[in-house]
Computed example of a mutant assay.
Amino acid sequence: MLSPLAHREPDLAAPHHLLLGSDLHGVTRYAGEVAAAAGAPVVRDVGDLAPGVAAHLHVTDRLIHRDPSVAAATVESLSQHVQLTVTLHDVPQPTDGPGFGARAAAYGRMVRASHAWATNSWHEHALIERWCAADARGAVIPLPVFRTPVPVGDEPAGQSEPVLGVFGFVYPGKGHQQVARAAAALRRAGTPARVRVLGGAAPGHDDEVEAMLRNSRARGVPVDVTGRVREADVTRALRGVTVPVVAHRNVSASGSLNSWIAAGRRPLVRDGAYAREMAELRPGTITLFDDATLVPRLEEAVRRPAGTWTSADTDLGPGLEDTAVAYRAWWASVGA
């Protein structure tokens, strides 16, 4: 659901927003939300952009092409046609594995090709500077959160078996396996925990789901994999687990974390630079854990489930309205 600001009329002072790919992709969906909230004209085809016009692109290499170098070349070509600003998503970091070098080089090319660039966190900004484009200077505009209205009568119900919930695509490093291992530890200690995966396999990672289910069965841990959750059902699904967990190891900016917070949850989040940045940005909305403390944090959350919720008066800002204001100020400052 978008805020009332999202319904403003298009404002030609805001750069055109080029939306690539399916609206089911998180980056594309977010780009559309920002465009609507900022009053920016939206185009779906590069051919609809007049030469020299100001344009903004929310970009992750995988949204454009499987080969990072091809994705970078596409952005370079676009930058020669329009005055291009970009927001970089899924910023490369060494934990990406074998593809890190190619992705880092591609993001460096995209930074150098753009008129101006932004990330969603200072953590990502630092990654760009360190690995992709030394001495580059971009803006930081955090991902927004705005509280999701809760349907009347949709209060959480007690559960005989605590459910540990992980939201989003399943892929290596997302933390599903660790959460299942933690559930096994809880069960050995007498707490009959189970795992609910709110999502399905990321493209090309069906084997990760199969491995998770196989390993979980061997440990005696029940695991439910829902597949993709419809947008209309997300809030109810996120409010329907006992303990929300955000366990991915290489997080740089997390839409799934913001979804938990928007639904009124206070998730357990793996400690790291980004997690600490978000804890400072939105005090009282997350609980940090590391490898040594996940099981104790889960035990505490099961004993005191109220600690996995935020109150209605908790400040979740910045919200979408704040994000739109920040983008418009940034575009004005760089002449976009």
Rank of each mutant, 00 (worst) to 15 (best):
V179I: 11
S160V: 13
V170I: 12
T226M: 09
Q159C: 14
V251A: 15
M212N: 01
G200I: 01
G168Q: 01
R194M: 08
G204D: 09
R194E: 11
P172Y: 03
D207F: 07
P172M: 07
V225D: 05
A247C: 14
G175C: 07
F167G: 00
V243I: 08
L164S: 04
R236F: 11
V234K: 04
A211F: 11
P222T: 08
P203Q: 07
A232C: 08
G200A: 02
T226V: 09
V170H: 03
Q159A: 15
Q159Y: 10
G168D: 04
A157I: 11
G153E: 06
V225M: 10
G158F: 14
V197H: 01
E210M: 11
N250C: 08
V229R: 01
V195Y: 03
D224K: 07
E161N: 13
T235P: 13
F169M: 15
E155Y: 06
Q178P: 12
A182D: 02
R228W: 13
L164A: 07
A185I: 08
G158E: 15
G173F: 02
G165H: 03
A182V: 03
A202I: 02
S252W: 00
A185R: 07
G168K: 01
L198V: 06
P172E: 07
A193R: 00
H248M: 10
F169Q: 15
A202Y: 09
L238T: 02
P192N: 05
R239D: 05
